[in-house]
């Protein structure tokens, strides 16, 4: 029972990061109907940028801020690269382009920073808290991650529901034509979606980097986790992404805890496959995943 609780607690922080990555995928999907498979590549790249800043300045926060800024810039650039085939109604092309970006980003990161795994520092301690004389699996850093996730989700919620930008983005996602007729510059809202997703992904990257070591393709596995969570959540739903991101993190933490870490990808795959078989549209969605 003790171990179960420990695995469970540890899973929350894991889940928070997956939730953020899934959120990034959902933000892009909502704005442009593209699953951005380069998202974790962007997060990896911006984490390296953040790490470089931390190495130079010693400031974790400054690293985070610069990483977020880099995420915004990358998101904007990639948006331009990927949206053209979408406009041509070449949906395969859009998917392929995101993979092209992923490959290029990983290679570029390896060129600049090398292929060896690097350790990313944490702002707070990353060792178990002692409660009543026993060490439990949750660390101050885990709590930090969870709090950061909650704050970010709150900010996102406020931006999307309470601001002109958010209203424009949501309208553009639901019905681009009506949005344009209302005067919303929809193409800018698409870009905004990619920019915000890039920023959210950057935060996710910086948060996960200390726990997973940072190397050009150490985040690949998170792409699978985040995609699984986003799809189960409905791919269109921010609430779904967060809920199932955390859920996926918890489940994987239990799997990892009771068997071993190399099972996580397989379990995520099974989860994804089951979901696509039985409920392809996801839990929070009314759009169709199946084509025939």
């Amino acid at each position: 029972m003790d171990t179960f609780v420990n695995f469970f607690l540890g899973g929350f922080a894991n889940g928070a990061v997956i939730a953020l990555m899934a959120l990034a995928l959902v933000l892009v999907w909502r704005s442009s109907r593209v699953v951005n498979f380069a998202q974790v590549g962007q997060a990896m790249f911006t984490s390296f940028v953040g790490l470089t800043v931390v190495d130079l300045t010693g400031s974790w926060i400054l690293g985070l801020v610069i990483a977020i800024a880099a995420g915004a810039v990358l998101g904007l650039i990639i948006h331009f690269l990927v949206m053209r085939p979408v406009r041509r109604a070449d949906s395969s092309g859009a998917i392929i382009a995101t993979f092209g970006v992923l490959i290029a980003l990983q290679a570029l990161a390896a060129m600049i920073w090398g292929g060896d795994p690097r350790a990313y520092p944490t702002p707070v301690s990353y060792s178990g808290i002692t409660v009543f004389g026993r060490v439990i699996a949750i660390t101050p850093y885990d709590i930090f991650v969870i709090v950061a996730m909650v704050i970010l989700v709150l900010i996102l919620t406020i931006v999307l529901t309470r601001t002109k930008l958010g209203l424009s983005m949501r309208a553009s996602a639901f019905n681009p034509e009506v949005a344009r007729l209302s005067g919303v510059r929809v193409s800018r809202m698409l870009a905004a979606g990619w920019i915000i997703a890039g920023m959210v992904g950057a935060v996710a990257g910086v948060l996960v980097a200390p726990t997973a070591t940072l190397s050009p393709n150490s985040f690949d596995i998170f792409l699978v986790f985040a995609f699984t969570a986003a799809v189960i959540g409905g791919l269109d739903s921010l609430v779904g992404a967060v809920t199932f991101g955390i859920g996926t993190g918890l489940l994987l933490s239990l799997v990892t805890g009771y068997s071993d870490a190399s099972n996580a990808a397989l379990v995520a795959l099974i989860l994804l496959a089951l979901n696509l078989w039985f409920k392809p549209e996801g839990a929070f969605n009314h759009h169709k995943a199946r084509s025939v």
């Binding site: 792409l223 990808a265 397989l266 995520a268 795959l269 994804l272 995943a289 084509s291």
Partner: peptide
Amino acid sequence: ARLRGPYLAGLTLGIAVGIPTIVNR
């Protein structure tokens, strides 16, 4: 085959990452 483009790409991505780990089982 029942899935639309991005879902299929994501599923097969999972396969590409997940299936090779079977060797550890």
